[in-house]
C-alpha cells in the first residue's frame, strides 16, 4: 500500500467512525462517551483529509486548494486504480 492509498484508508476508517457515531448520537444524544468518540474521530478525519488534499488534490469540488483546477484529474474512484 502506497502513501496515497494509506491516507485514503485512514479517511475511510475515520469517516466511518464519524458516520457510526452520528447515527448513534441521533437516538442517544446524551451519551457522553459517544460524543467524545465523535469529537475524537472528527478531529482525526479532518487531519487525514487535510494531509490527503495537500498531497493528492481535492476530494470535493469545494476543496480545490491549488491555483490550478485539479478536481477533474483522474483516476476517478470507480476506476479501481486508487
Amino acid at each position: 500500500m502506497n502513501h496515497k492509498q494509506a491516507l485514503l484508508k485512514k479517511i475511510q476508517i475515520q469517516d466511518f467512525a464519524v458516520q457510526e457515531a452520528s447515527l448513534y448520537l441521533i437516538s442517544h444524544p446524551k451519551d457522553k462517551s459517544a460524543m467524545e468518540y465523535y469529537q475524537h474521530s472528527r478531529a482525526l478525519l479532518k487531519e487525514a483529509i487535510d494531509e490527503y488534499e495537500q498531497n493528492y488534490g481535492p476530494l470535493t469540488s469545494r476543496s480545490n486548494l491549488d491555483r490550478e483546477w485539479k478536481y477533474v484529474y483522474g483516476p476517478w474512484p470507480w476506476e479501481g486504480e486508487n
Partner: peptide, 14 residues
C-alpha cells in the same frame, strides 16, 4: 461511469 475522458466524468458527477 463509462464516460471516456475526465472532464466528462467530472461534469456528469457535479
Amino acid at each position: 461511469y463509462v464516460m471516456p475522458y475526465p472532464q466528462l466524468k467530472a461534469m456528469l458527477t457535479e
